[in-house]
């Protein structure tokens, strides 16, 4: 509880959360306005249900993608100096000389940030999904909603762990750049793979994308979310509708085993961070 309260004070008093909320509200408002305009365009026109649903999927995927990117930037800028920054500016000197094992400090900081991050991600997730559901009448089953919500908040938790691990070994700015590039590469490789797969599988691109997925599973989780949202709905979509979504198509949907891998991934990343922090000299 103390770590959560402490992280909350930091995020609010440094005005990170207020600023993020205002800008997020702007993003969500624009998104909702877009959804509303599309929904009104459908009215009074003879449209196929399939076309309606297809547009809803693209909009929803775009909304989820951009909200994930906003959350990713929030994580990067908030936590790129979580360890190294606090060492560099002397905050850690008084903290680590207390009778507390370093791994507890590390995991405490992770838990504190994670709590507020999940809260923010939850707000963003429902702010995207609700307009799509109510204005575009996109069908959502409660179980699907729960599964996709968990997957949606999972990626930020992974990115947070990676960012804190990087912060244990790299200076603040270097870590920010490294994590942003890793996240960007992960997303780009996923999009590139989808585009290449549309014209026939490219082994080299697929292999490269797979390696990046192992390093940073952000894009895979987004693919899985899209897949989960469509799976089992028995939507009246043309056979090629989803595949024609270009970079947002759901080729190579990550398996349950891959989702399981991300759990192991998180545990390993956190363990590595704790180990690295324990061994680190605070000069």
């Amino acid at each position: 509880m103390s770590w959560i309260a402490f992280a909350g004070k930091e995020l609010f008093r440094k005005r990170i959360f207020p600023v993020t909320f205002v800008l997020s509200l702007l993003f969500v408002s624009l998104f909702t306005f877009g959804v509303y305009k599309i929904s009104t365009n459908f009215e009074g026109h003879v449209e196929t249900l399939a076309g309606n649903v297809s547009d809803s999927i693209v909009l929803m995927t775009l909304g989820l993608l951009f909200s994930q990117m906003i959350i990713a930037f929030f994580i990067l800028f908030t936590t790129m100096g979580a360890i190294s920054g606090e060492i560099e500016n002397g905050l850690m000197l008084a903290i680590l000389s207390r009778p507390i094992p370093r791994w507890k400090v590390y995991l405490g900081k992770y838990a504190g940030y994670a709590f507020w991050l999940v809260l923010y991600a939850a707000i963003m997730y429902f702010a995207i999904m609700m307009p799509v559901h109510y204005l575009l009448h996109f069908p959502m089953l409660p179980l699907t909603l729960l599964k996709t919500f968990l997957l949606f908040i999972w990626t930020p938790l992974l990115l947070l762990a990676v960012c804190m691990l990087g912060s244990t070994f790299l200076p603040m700015l270097g870590n920010g750049v490294a994590c942003a590039m890793l996240y960007g590469l992960s997303m780009f490789s996923g999009f590139a793979e989808n585009i290449f797969n549309k014209v026939g599988e490219n082994e080299m691109v697929s292999r490269f994308a797979f390696l990046l997925k192992l390093l940073m599973p952000a894009n895979s989780m987004l693919n899985r979310i899209t897949f989960e949202l469509l799976d089992g709905l028995e939507l009246p979509l043309p056979t090629q509708a989803v595949e024609s979504m270009g970079p947002f198509a759901t080729f190579n949907v990550p398996s349950n085993a891959f989702v399981g891998y991300t759990i192991v991934y998180l545990i390993i990343i956190l363990a590595l961070g704790c180990f690295g922090f324990r061994k680190k000299d605070i000069a």
């Binding site: 509880m1 103390s2 500016n89 002397g90 905050l91 008084a94 903290i95 000389s97 207390r98």
Partner: peptide, 29 residues
């Protein structure tokens, strides 16, 4: 321990800094 060239969390009050350190020493919230 009073370190040299230290800093405290400037977004906290002095009393909050002390409470935070008490927590690090094992005191409950």
């Amino acid at each position: 321990y009073l370190p040299e060239l230290f800093r405290f969390q400037d977004w906290l009050t002095g009393a909050e800094v002390l409470r935070y350190h008490a927590g690090l020493c094992g005191m409950t919230r």
